[in-house]
């Protein structure tokens, strides 16, 4: 699975991108975030408040119960501030 991080999520984790293989128990966005928290202190800090982070699966906004699969591109980022 390809993980992408933007804005303060990227700076907190210290990576713009990583490839990970979540355990089989990770089935949806909420489960993925819970598992990612355990990956290190940066991940834990970025995901301390999961509601503050937006998630996109394959470049579309995703809700916590949306399923995730090994080939997906999953992005984590703060609420957007463009325009």
């Amino acid at each position: 699975m390809k993980l992408l991080y933007f804005a303060w999520v990227r700076t907190a984790i210290g990576l713009a991108e990583e490839r990970l293989t979540p355990p089989p128990g990770v089935r949806d966005v909420a489960g993925l975030l819970e598992w990612l928290k355990t990956r290190g202190p940066g991940h834990a800090a970025a995901l301390a408040e999961p509601a503050a982070v937006r998630v996109a699966v394959n470049q579309d906004y995703a809700r916590p119960d949306q399923p995730v699969a090994p080939g997906d591109e999953v992005a984590l980022f703060p609420p957007v501030t463009g325009g």
Partner: peptide
């Protein structure tokens, strides 16, 4: 666009940088 397009603003001043909040 302001609510959905994935852009983020980093503000830079003499005292440092910070990500703008939505």
């Amino acid at each position: 666009l302001k609510a959905r397009a994935p852009f983020w603003k980093l503000e830079e001043t003499a005292t440092g940088s910070r990500w703008l909040e939505a």
